[in-house]
Amino acid sequence: MTLGAETPQAYAAPWRYLLDLDLAAEVVWPKAAADEPIGRLLADPRAARQQHSDGLWLRLIDLESALPARRYGAGADVVLEITDGFRPWNAGRWRLRTSLSDASVSRTQEPAQLALDTADLAAAYLGGTTLTSLAAAGRVRELVPGALSTASRAFATDRPPSCPDAF
């Protein structure tokens, strides 16, 4: 099931109907987004059980096209040292400049401020995984103090990615 609505009231109305049916002991939504607000519609939000599974993957194959194509949550000017064992043309240093309205990326010889693999960059690119959480797991290295939080804020999104369709 896919549910989209223009307003919070329009979102809540069909759920309120389903949740108020006395004959329904359980409602299951296997493709719900991680931040789905349905649990907050319950009289007891702790009664909701959420189980996470993978459903959306991304492979960045052309950094020069992909990085400027998305919107960013904050301005940043950071040099990324990218490794990519599968697509060697992505490897190297890239200067990423972002604002709320546009972004640019170019190869550079400037010293790197962050070091990461394209797999981790792809996770941050979707907005559901922060660079700071990847750094805590040892997957991103901050080479210049402050670069990690600046870049993580730039890649942040208001809602995590979600794909309600099977493909």
Score class of each variant (00 low, 15 high):
residue 59 R to A: 15
residue 39 G to Q: 04
residue 46 R to M: 07
residue 113 Q to D: 13
residue 106 S to L: 08
residue 82 I to A: 02
residue 26 E to W: 12
residue 133 S to N: 12
residue 147 A to W: 08
residue 136 A to H: 05
residue 146 G to E: 07
residue 151 A to C: 06
residue 3 L to Q: 13
residue 11 Y to K: 08
residue 72 Y to D: 10
residue 118 T to M: 02
residue 16 R to P: 06
residue 152 S to Q: 09
residue 154 A to H: 08
residue 108 T to H: 05
residue 114 L to I: 01
residue 147 A to F: 11
residue 18 L to S: 11
residue 62 D to E: 11
residue 106 S to H: 12
residue 27 V to D: 09
residue 19 L to W: 14
residue 60 L to N: 05
residue 148 L to I: 02
residue 102 D to Y: 06
residue 124 A to N: 11
residue 30 P to S: 13
residue 65 S to V: 02
residue 90 N to T: 11
residue 162 S to M: 01
residue 134 L to F: 02
residue 16 R to S: 12
residue 159 R to V: 07
residue 24 A to H: 15
residue 5 A to I: 05
residue 130 T to W: 05
residue 13 A to G: 09
residue 105 V to W: 00
residue 65 S to Q: 07
residue 153 R to I: 07
residue 43 A to T: 12
residue 80 L to F: 03
residue 48 A to L: 09
residue 64 E to G: 04
residue 61 I to C: 10
residue 32 A to Y: 10
residue 146 G to Y: 05
residue 92 G to F: 09
residue 66 A to S: 09
residue 84 D to Y: 07
residue 114 L to C: 00
residue 68 P to M: 05
residue 6 E to S: 01
residue 131 L to G: 03
residue 65 S to T: 07
residue 52 H to T: 04
residue 19 L to I: 13
residue 75 G to R: 10
residue 73 G to N: 15
residue 165 D to S: 14
residue 10 A to H: 06
residue 62 D to I: 04
residue 148 L to A: 06
residue 33 A to Q: 03
residue 150 T to D: 11
residue 146 G to T: 03
residue 122 A to H: 08
residue 115 A to Q: 12
residue 144 V to A: 10
residue 129 T to P: 01
residue 115 A to Y: 01
residue 6 E to M: 00
residue 93 R to C: 01
residue 4 G to S: 13
residue 110 E to A: 14
residue 39 G to E: 04
residue 94 W to R: 00
residue 3 L to Y: 11
residue 155 F to E: 05
residue 37 P to N: 09
residue 91 A to D: 14
residue 71 R to A: 14
residue 31 K to N: 10
residue 142 E to W: 00
residue 157 T to V: 12
residue 142 E to M: 00
residue 28 V to Q: 09
residue 156 A to G: 07
residue 103 A to W: 06
residue 152 S to D: 09
residue 147 A to Q: 15
residue 110 E to S: 10
residue 121 L to P: 07
residue 113 Q to L: 02
residue 85 G to Q: 13
